[in-house]
């Protein structure tokens, strides 16, 4: 099975986020970056499917030059090759236009199955996989917790709300958005990292793919949200903070 996994590089969760000087995005200096977590689960699912069924895993990533590090990591974990659509300032494109860029790059590979994470940690629009499926004319399923490959079709377990699930069968080719926790992530081995150096990363970009990165909805301002609740902040050493909290829980909340 030929599986394509679309991954995104996002700022690491621990980083301190500051608004950029122009107020329209974040200041990326000093931040470290990693593979968007749900995409890492999508990659793992693709690798496990290949181990069962044979075939090829291709990684696709749209992003600036720095995304190469995340692509190398995906290759080190076991992806066979990669396509990097090199574009700066993708934050100024909207989901529809970004989807067109990815769809063009995917169409050139004609995979049997396209996997991606259900949402990104940065934008959290939760729509890229679905947009791409529509643009490619493929069926899709979202928030997937299990994948069983059949002959020309797949059966997937989809998460609904409040602890409900549902099985769906889709004809191939198809697009799935993968939920975090579907599998156990592997680490890249030393051997994998060595091998990754020799693997192909083909680069392309929006103009080569004939896509404009316009936007119908553009970010005008990025800012810290205002606090709606008066939180009582407890200061001091850990022991002092603990003592104050216990006192509040006794006197004000009346538990303990």
């Amino acid at each position: 099975m030929k599986i394509l996994v679309a991954i995104k590089q996002v700022p690491s969760r621990d980083g301190q986020l500051k608004t950029a000087a122009d107020g329209r995005w974040i200041d990326e200096s000093g931040l470290t970056f990693e593979i968007n977590e749900p995409d890492a689960y999508a990659l793992e699912e693709a690798l496990q499917l290949r181990e069962k069924l044979g075939g090829e895993v291709i990684v696709l990533c749209a992003g600036p030059e720095r995304a190469t590090a995340s692509i190398r990591e995906a290759l080190a974990k076991g992806a066979d090759r990669a396509v990097h659509a090199v574009e700066d300032n993708l934050e100024s494109a909207d989901g529809f236009h970004l989807g067109r860029l990815l769809a063009k790059a995917i169409a050139a590979e004609s995979p049997d199955l396209v996997l991606t994470g259900l949402q990104s940690d940065d934008f959290g629009h939760g729509q890229t996989g679905v947009v791409v499926a529509e643009l490619l004319g493929l069926p899709h399923a979202t928030i997937i917790m299990q994948v069983e490959a059949g002959e020309g079709s797949i059966r997937v377990k989809r998460e609904l709300e409040d602890g409900w699930f549902q099985y769906l069968t889709l004809p191939l080719p198809a697009v799935l958005t993968i939920q975090s926790g579907i599998n156990k992530l592997r680490y890249a081995t030393l051997m994998g990292i060595k091998k990754a150096r020799a693997k192909e990363i083909r680069t392309t970009n929006a103009s080569e793919l004939g896509v404009s990165l316009a936007a119908e909805a553009t970010i005008e301002r990025v800012y810290a949200p205002s606090r709606s609740k008066q939180t009582v902040m407890l200061e001091g050493s850990p022991a002092e903070q603990a003592a104050q909290l216990v006192e509040k829980l006794q006197r004000e909340v009346r538990v303990l």
Partner: peptide
């Protein structure tokens, strides 16, 4: 912004040639 909407609304907006601003 329900799980069901996440499943079809991006597809619908795309079919109309539009973007979905979600959540």
């Amino acid at each position: 912004h329900t799980y069901q909407v996440r499943d079809y609304a991006p597809k619908l907006a795309t079919r109309r040639g539009r973007t979905l601003v979600s959540d």
